[in-house]
Structures are given as C-alpha cells and as structure tokens.
C-alpha cells in the first residue's frame, strides 16, 4: 500500500506544510483539555492522524526511520504509566485514586489539580497517539501472515 512515495507534487507539498500545524493543534487540544472541549484522547487522535498522513504521503519506510515500532510501544506504556502513576501517587499520599490535590507539591489546590489533569491528559495523549500510529503501521505495513506481536521493524 505505502511502499513508495506519492507521486503528486501537490499532495507532498501541502502535507509538508500542513503536518506541523496539525501537530501544533493536537498539542493545543491536549494542553487546553481541562478548560475547553477536547482533551487527551482527541488530541492524541489528531497527533496520530498527522503521522498517518505523513506515512501515506511519504511512504511507510520513511515513517519507520523517524519513529520505530519499539519507540511507539514504549510511548504507549509510558502514557499508561503516567496516567496510572499519578493516580497511584495520590493514593500513596492518602487520597482516593486520581484524587487531585493530594500531591506533595508546594502549590495551592486548584493549581495542583490543573497540573495533575495536565499530566494525565499528556499520558492519555501519548498512549492514544502511539496506539493509532501502531494500528497504521500494522495494517498498512505488514505482509499478510505476519504476527501482530512481533517486535521486528
């Protein structure tokens, strides 16, 4: 499907221009998740979509040079670790799971809640982005019959 680059000059130029803006928008959606519509999931999907666009236009092999399957699996686990780690830290300091405001930081409670929510959103965003990109790599790149859990790139 995406062994070689798309031949259309228009598609390549437009994607090269628009992909940074898509990623910037994804980061904006993630970081403003607590006060406006959007959040970790939506921003992560937008970030993953930008990588999918890159992979469709500039071949899968170029994408794999930039971001490999191992790094993606690492990001996926890291996102989950951030999310559950913040909840567990809150539990360690005497709160409920994901009870913001119990973190041992020299901040007032609303600021601490905002910081915790931001960290949780970043974790969700990382996890969703790498999952979507992994779906793309597995579906578009693998020959039929390859095991889905193989770590070969």
């Amino acid at each position: 499907m995406s062994e070689k680059m798309v031949e259309s000059v228009v598609a390549r130029t437009i994607s090269r221009i628009i992909i940074p803006f898509i990623q910037l928008y994804g980061i904006y959606v993630i970081t403003h998740g607590e006060s406006s519509p959007g959040g970790g999931f939506q921003g992560g999907v937008i970030l993953g979509t930008s990588i999918i666009l890159f992979g469709i236009v500039f071949s899968l092999n170029t994408t794999k040079k930039w971001i490999s399957k191992k790094i993606l699996i690492l990001f996926m686990s890291l996102g989950l670790l951030i999310y559950s780690g913040i909840g567990a830290i809150d539990m360690l300091f005497g709160g409920k799971y994901l009870e913001y405001g119990k973190l041992p930081l020299p901040l007032h409670s609303p600021e601490m809640s905002a910081l915790s929510i931001l960290m949780v959103e970043i974790g969700i965003g990382l996890c969703v982005m790498s999952t979507i990109t992994l779906l793309f790599i597995f579906l578009a790149g693998e020959k039929s019959g390859t095991r889905m859990d193989s770590w070969e790139i």
Partner: peptide
C-alpha cells in the same frame, strides 16, 4: 456536545476511514 463532536470528527472521519481503506486494500 462539542467534546463528542470533536471525537466524532477526529475518529469517525479520520481514523476510521483509514482503517476501512487499509482493510479494503487487502
């Protein structure tokens, strides 16, 4: 429901189309 609209636009129009097309290519 702008949150759901966001998800619908990103997942429904973006990722699902790609998943269907790449499944269709097989």
């Amino acid at each position: 429901a702008p949150d759901v609209a966001f998800t619908e636009a990103a997942v429904g129009a973006g990722v699902t189309s790609f998943l269907f097309i790449s499944a269709l290519s097989k």
